[in-house]
Design a binder for these strands. Structure first.
Lengths: 115, 115
DNA sequence: CTGAATCCCTCACGATACTG
DNA sequence: CAGTATCGTGAGGGATTCAG
């Protein structure tokens, strides 16, 4: 099995590396919503079901520092913060799209239908 | 956000459903190894770094009951157990392959090289 | 409005020992 | 050889409160 280090953490597969960057419950939903438009914090909060401020801000910060997103603070009153996707972020969209398609086909074969 | 139920668990995205089936540390590595050949338990154990018997057997059992793998017990002495991929399992290979490719490209851009 | 800080809890996973 | 049983741990995530 391959094996490599990043940030003092051991990885065994490239897939594992992908999930360390854009895995977890909320990162792909965030990227997906930003794929073709700029969105502010409160809009993300509203559009992603059940996400807490803690998880949303934590994931946004990580996606920014990993280069997938950009953050723009507009000094109005009240303050407005806009998030947009970078080119690196856009490179993740095809794989997310493929995962969605595969998910829908799996659900269909498993007899699950959306509400 | 979409929302649906399966096994009394709530899902919000198709991607989430995919990970509930083939996510976690070992399921994709297992599927990947079985994509073009039949492999027995001890061979899987050897080829997947650091996997414990507990996790390997647990994941194999789930993949079988979810229809991704098939298990064949050969009554020799000592006993031999072979795992093979099903058609449903094979449908997951393209997405795993795409995740691998994306992982390698991410690693390259992040300046990581395999040992 | 946009978060950060704190506390708690669950569950995936690891280690070890044991069995048909 | 191919697992199961048991116990322990840590990281991801939820709820709540506070702050610029």
């Amino acid at each position: 099995m391959p094996e490599f280090l990043s940030d003092n953490k051991k990885y065994y597969t490239p897939v594992e590396y992908v999930f360390s960057k854009i895995g977890g419950t909320y990162k792909m939903p965030i990227l997906w919503r930003l794929k073709d438009k700029i969105v502010r914090y409160s809009e993300l909060k509203k559009s992603i079901s059940n996400v807490s401020d803690r998880m949303l801000s934590k994931n946004l910060k990580e996606l920014c520092s990993d280069g997938f997103l950009e953050k723009k603070i507009i000094a109005e009153v009240p303050v407005r913060v806009e998030y947009s996707i970078t080119e690196k972020g856009n490179n993740s969209i095809p794989i997310i799209s493929a995962l969605r398609d595969y998910g829908f086909s799996l659900m269909e074969k498993d007899g699950i239908n959306k509400k």
